[in-house]
Design a protein around this nucleic acid. Structure first.
Lengths: 192, 192
DNA sequence: TACTGGATAGAGCGTTCGTTCTAGCGGCGT
DNA sequence: ACGCCGCTAGAACGAACGCTCTATCCAGTA
């Protein structure tokens, strides 16, 4: 195991993140995780003594960071905020289609499942949405919108993207995301 | 069992719908369903020989009809479409808060879980979203919007409501729904 | 060479899963 | 009064669940 390869722990987290994204918390077993990650059950419990719950929290944090980095990159490439949101919807639609409509939002499925039952997971998901909203808000602030308008728009941008991605996944169609992009751009433009 | 009481089958479907809404497909067991519904496992398999999958499809259709009726009632009470959507967000927020943030969208959790794995459930969820969009589209058509604009707005109205409700549930706050209502009304008004 | 401690390996714990099965209840039509 | 049948009841099956346990491996240190 040379140092430039990814370690067992990281491999377990990434595998868990992908499985949580695709089939949720309840339907994902630890044995399935260890098999997919090419690690043993012993390794899983070695790195995550808290078991499935602790591992899921770590995986959601991973999905959080992953999507935040993608969002930041897309925003850096396009200056106009409306156009940047449209670019987001295109990227999300492409990723969804290319994965065979399997890879939607990395955390939403687990977040919904565990709302009200698994406080740790729910909190990790809440923090992720907060991080993503902050990225959108800053982008809107940089384009000259006021603090209040930017903060509220950030809510709706993230929530509409979430809803549209869910709808696109269920209907296996890019249309909901494409429409969402145009509507969000129009809404943002209406505040300038 | 007099005829004006609800029968065992209906009781099983309603219980399944509520459990699917609260904890998803994978985390809901048939024994839990039969216990909560005060029915036996034999009754469950008597009415739903197709087992868990068939029962879940029926429960999602139940949730579909339930929400469609609520949506139609809210739309009938308020004439202006923007104001009607705001009324929707208020009702959704109230329902969410009153249930202790447990009862979000009746079908989204199961829909996301089963996307790509359970075609029957995915299709039932897709049909539900389609029905709800049709209600929104008709409401917008009645207020004078063109066919194309109404159809596309219906997508975003439903998707934004879905995303905002999910966000409200995870953060245990009515704010995302309240913001979504105002933004959607503004978006709708911008087309008249 | 001997020791140590992090990491790996996998058998096995009790429990619950979805499902199948047979037996029995109870009200209706004849 | 009888037989039938929709429905209820719950035991039991193999498989999978989360988790615990002991044994082994192996690089680093003295």
């Amino acid at each position: 195991m040379t140092k430039h390869e990814i370690g067992t722990r990281e491999r377990i987290v990434r595998t868990t993140s992908r499985l949580l994204q695709r089939q949720g918390y309840g339907a994902t077993g630890l044995k399935e995780i260890s098999r997919e990650a090419e690690a043993t059950l012993g390794s899983v419990y070695h790195f995550f003594p808290g078991g499935k719950r602790e591992l899921a929290v770590e995986a959601i944090r991973h999905g959080d960071k992953e999507f935040a980095e993608a969002l930041a990159a897309w925003f850096d490439r396009v200056d106009d905020p409306g156009a940047a949101v449209i670019a987001c919807t295109r990227e999300l639609a492409a990723g969804l289609r290319e994965s065979g409509w399997l890879d939607g939002c990395p955390i939403t499925t687990a977040a919904l499942e565990s709302a009200g039952h698994e406080p740790d997971i729910q909190r990790a998901a809440e923090e992720a949405y907060e991080n993503w909203r902050a990225l959108v808000r800053d982008k809107l602030l940089r384009s000259g919108l006021t603090e209040d308008v930017a903060r509220e728009l950030a809510h709706t941008v993230i929530n509409t993207l979430e809803g549209a991605e869910m709808s696109a996944q269920v209907s296996q169609s890019e249309e909901p995301l494409e429409i969402a992009g145009r509507h969000l751009a129009r809404l943002i433009d209406s505040y300038r």
